[in-house]
Simulated assay, not measured.
Amino acid sequence: MKRTLFERVKYRLRKSCYDACHPDYAKKYANRFLPSFSQSDLECCVRHLYEFRMRKKLDLDNVSTFNEKLNWLKCFYHDDRMTECADKVTAPKYFEEQTGLGDSYIVRNIGVFRSASEINFSLLPDEYVLKSNWGSGRQLIVRSGDNVDVEGIREEIASWVDLSTNHYYHGFEYGYKNIEPRIVCEEFIDFEYKLEFFCFNGKPCYFWTVFNDKTDDVCANFFDANTLEQIDLRHGYPNSSKTIDIPAYYGDMFNIAEKLASDFPFVRIDFYKTSDSFKFSEMTFYHWCGLMPFDPESFDLEFGKRIQLPAKML
């Protein structure tokens, strides 16, 4: 969700005050791009970022809630397969290898570019989506009939390959850390909503339906993935008044999510629900970066109970 100008200013002021009160953390966070950034520095930054955002302490030796465990995973679970899954360039290949399905369930890549200057916009179709392959939320949609300002687009997306835009260096989500930066051009998908499975140790337990994704009107509803009953829960987005009929191919989506999630303690498997089918969207290992309260709060612990933490992998 986009913050208002007032919310952004308020956030920055609170962050400045917090940093001033915790100079050791502020120094370590400022050095996160350097080779000298250590495991202890990482743990310090993860603890303090959690404290700043969640307004409570994080004891990495004693975690129980969903948000706490996601932050534990940032520090101690560094499986390089997450790099392949999080990278929008390589994720489709991982999907095909794990599911044995063809590319009909994948959003087609039109082009992959090392920089904005490489893109020949005259060769792109009338509709497409530009995305950063190592970040979250960075996308630009072009629809048929849009007045395309090529230079304006180049200027807007040029920073997407700068190290400072790598999602790892904002919330320490390990899967993004070692991705080679690219700008991806995907086919435009006209979808009804996104259906995203929350998978714990390989088992899809919940899903939510996200409407109006990446807009100010975004909203979502949670469901039990096995009983299909709606859950009274809000997490980052308000609930939607829209009702859905469970797709006839829900079982196929569930089975695919189970295959993709089989090797990980937690991952969210996202699909686009189109008018007559579905397509794989992405795999997300740190839902809301592990920094979003639940309403009601009890679900933070309920979700957390389902994650069996693996042995530390540094």
Score class of each variant (00 low, 15 high):
Val184Arg: 00
Pro125Leu: 07
Gly175Thr: 05
Asp232Thr: 03
Ser281Ile: 03
Ser164Ile: 14
Cys75Leu: 01
Thr90Asn: 09
Asp276Tyr: 06
Phe37His: 04
Met54Pro: 05
Asn212Val: 10
Gln39Lys: 08
Trp208Val: 04
Leu123Met: 11
Tyr249Leu: 12
Glu127Ser: 15
Asn62Phe: 14
Lys305Tyr: 05
Tyr249Ala: 10
Cys219Glu: 13
Cys199Ser: 10
Phe266Ala: 01
Lys131Leu: 13
Asp24Pro: 04
Thr4Asn: 04
Asp87Thr: 02
Asn120Cys: 12
Lys56Pro: 02
Trp288Met: 04
Pro35Val: 09
Asp245Cys: 15
Arg138Asp: 09
Val46Pro: 01
Lys69Tyr: 00
Gly111Glu: 00
Leu42Trp: 02
Pro35Gly: 08
Arg306Lys: 13
Ala257Asn: 10
His170Lys: 11
Ala257Val: 14
Cys75Gln: 00
Lys10Gln: 13
Lys177Tyr: 01
Asn133Phe: 10
Ala86Asp: 07
Ser117Phe: 04
Cys219Met: 10
Asp245His: 15
Ser132Phe: 03
Phe207Cys: 02
Met253Gln: 10
Arg81Leu: 05
Cys289Trp: 02
Val9Ala: 05
Leu301Thr: 10
Lys259Arg: 14
Met82Glu: 06
Trp72Cys: 01
Tyr250Lys: 10
Asp61Ala: 09
Val9Lys: 02
Asp300Asn: 14
Asn71Thr: 12
Asn71Met: 10
Met54Ser: 08
Gly171Cys: 09
Lys69Ile: 00
Lys203Arg: 14
Val9Tyr: 04
His22Phe: 07
Ser117Met: 08
Ser144Ala: 13
Asp80Lys: 15
Glu186Ala: 01
Asn255Trp: 11
Thr209Glu: 05
Asp146Cys: 06
Tyr128Asp: 07
Tyr174Arg: 03
Tyr169Asp: 00
Cys205Thr: 09
Asp300Pro: 09
Ser240Trp: 14
Pro181Arg: 06
Leu101Asn: 00
Ser104Asp: 15
Trp72Thr: 00
Tyr11Trp: 12
Gly304Met: 01
Phe278Glu: 04
Glu229Met: 12
Ala158Glu: 06
